[in-house]
């Protein structure tokens, strides 16, 4: 009897939260029906926002991956002085609010170093690169943390065995560790990409919210709401939901098929 009550208790939590999310989605449908009579679908603007979001999220996620893989490898496989402090710095973006991160970047570009960069390399603030940089800063901590977990999960003795067979450290990294971690890294990439797609706070602070210029999907939703354009905002929310569900469902299917490590 106690077991049954315990199970009901557990299921009650799960069902109530799923129902809550479904209620939110049905609420959107309901609102769409009311507003669709009055409004026109802003094709160009929404298409621009989708295109810009997918482009910036892909570039920022790939850049984050390029940094995160070697950093996660060092953190997973090596001990060094002040490792805990280095860890804390690298994971800061996970705990700091995106707006604060955006503000920090904005302040940086107001320093001599930032100004020098903008005038001699390329402009960042209130431009598309600002969105990429903001997304990158927000997701990099998460990327390192996820990929480090993947590396931690793989027995480092595989690399030691490979070395006894004549493989150098780079060879063990590229021929043993990376292929073994491939699926985990891909899952991590999808997660950080989804997070980049949804990034708003840091991006709006550094890139601003300029229609058809720095207008990603979250910024477009914000602008639509700000101008009381509920219809377009709901359409964008639906597109965001669709992307989110596809990515998360893909990750779960992928995770289920993941072979256990020996």
């Amino acid at each position: 009897m106690k077991n049954k009550i315990f199970k009901i208790f557990l299921w009650a939590f799960l069902i109530s939260l799923v129902l809550f999310f479904l209620t939110l989605i049905f609420g959107l449908f309901n609102q769409l029906k009311i507003t669709s009579v009055q409004k026109q679908f802003a094709f160009g603007e929404i298409f621009f926002a989708i295109k810009l979001t997918l482009l910036t999220a892909t570039v920022s996620s790939l850049s984050a991956l390029i940094f995160a893989v070697p950093i996660a490898y060092i953190l997973s496989r090596h001990n060094f002085p002040l490792k805990n402090i280095v860890n804390s710095i690298l994971y800061l973006p996970i705990v700091i609010s995106p707006i604060a991160l955006g503000a920090m970047l904005l302040i940086f570009f107001n320093t001599p170093a930032g100004k020098f960069f903008e005038s001699n390399v390329f402009r960042v603030v209130f431009e598309v690169p600002a969105i990429i940089l903001a997304q990158f800063i927000v997701i990099i901590g998460l990327a390192i943390s996820l990929i480090k977990s993947v590396f931690d999960y793989i027995n480092p003795e595989y690399e030691l065995v490979a070395r006894t067979l004549g493989a150098t450290q780079p060879q063990t990294f590229f021929r043993i560790l990376l292929p073994t971690a491939k699926k985990g890294i891909l899952s991590a990439f999808l997660l950080i990409w989804a997070r980049a797609v949804g990034e708003f706070g840091a991006a709006v602070t550094l890139a601003g919210a300029t229609t058809m210029k720095t207008e990603t999907m979250p910024i477009a939703i914000f602008l639509s709401f700000a101008s009381c354009d509920i219809y377009n905002a709901i359409i964008l929310i639906f597109i965001s939901l669709f992307i989110g569900i596809v990515v998360l469902y893909g990750i779960h299917i992928y995770a289920e098929n993941r072979k256990p490590q020996l």
Partner: peptide
Amino acid sequence: MPEERNIGFLPQNYLLFPN
């Protein structure tokens, strides 16, 4: 270096490369 020693090693759990 370990990779240049030419010493064979059979680890405890064999550790065959899973990939």
